[in-house]
Design a protein around this nucleic acid. Structure first.
Lengths: 147, 147
DNA sequence: TGAAATTCTATTTATTTAGTAGGATTAATT
DNA sequence: AATTAATCCTACTAAATAAATAGAATTTCA
């Protein structure tokens, strides 16, 4: 499994929104600083996430972004779909693309593979990312207090 | 899940070898004709498969290739590894690549995702491809006889 | 020894991904 | 109402990867 940097940056940014879910909106500028990512690049990514209804914007001074729905309802599948599109083996979506489709054993297996991977991606949500991130936050705190 | 054309061509060619397993070696030229794939491109792909011990060659007139082991022992994971290399998110293999690694919640989830996808790929073998391909062969035969 | 196969290295072309630039638009704040 | 700090949008460039081609070297059966 390989994920584009776009998806990985997107997830890292979404984690920040998720950490503030139902608290306040987050500025792209701040995410860009904290995560050390190009503001312009994040800008692109967020445009796509917004179009797909994963985040909402507040466009004005002191604006920013927030999640459009609870973290547990945002799947990794959805995030990937929004950012890189579901890039499938062509013949799966359109069997006319290859003349062998109607009698291709490989295609059957590709379909099965695809379904399994999709399932894995749909079973991971932003909540999982947030849960793991919070563990590290807690560890950092405990270090501070134990010194 | 997206697979490069290299992997897909490779699998299609391996199916042909698998169909002839323990019968005779298959010429790249013939595969190239039957599957309508560039001989030179297949050449590249087969070189990699050979290096990784998936196929064996007979280099001479009337030579060709054959599987180095039974189809059920050749996993899709292995084929992908041979042809495109395991292209993982960089920080999984080398945590020094990113300063956030030691306290990155996302990385934990990437690891989990990776393990799951690898498992799926390791549970699909060349035998699965051959089984599905043979079904179509049988269908074709039954059509011939029923006409 | 000739012919038919694989082997190997280099090169080219196309596609995708990553990243940058700059101005337009929006609306809260002053 | 003007200012300002944010998102929005389009276009472009550069780098990396994937796809494909070319041509000659090597091997060994017949």
């Amino acid at each position: 499994m390989f994920l584009s940097t776009r998806v990985r940056y997107g997830v890292r940014a979404l984690i920040e929104l998720g950490m503030n879910y139902q608290k306040q909106s987050v500025l792209l500028k701040d995410i860009s600083k904290r995560q050390n990512l190009s503001l312009k690049y994040l800008d692109h990514i967020f445009m796509q996430l917004k179009t797909k209804g994963i985040i909402k914007k507040i466009k004005a001074k002191k604006g920013g972004y927030l999640l459009a729905k609870p973290p547990e309802k945002i799947t990794l599948y959805e995030i990937i779909e929004a950012i890189e599109g579901v890039r499938r083996i062509e013949c799966l979506d359109d069997e006319n693309i290859c003349s062998r489709s109607s009698h291709c054993g490989a295609r059957i297996v590709w379909k099965r593979l695809n379904a399994k991977v999709d399932e894995v991606l749909k079973n991971i949500t932003l909540k999982d990312f947030i849960r793991e991130s919070k563990k590290f936050e807690q560890m950092d705190e405990s270090v501070v207090f134990s010194v």
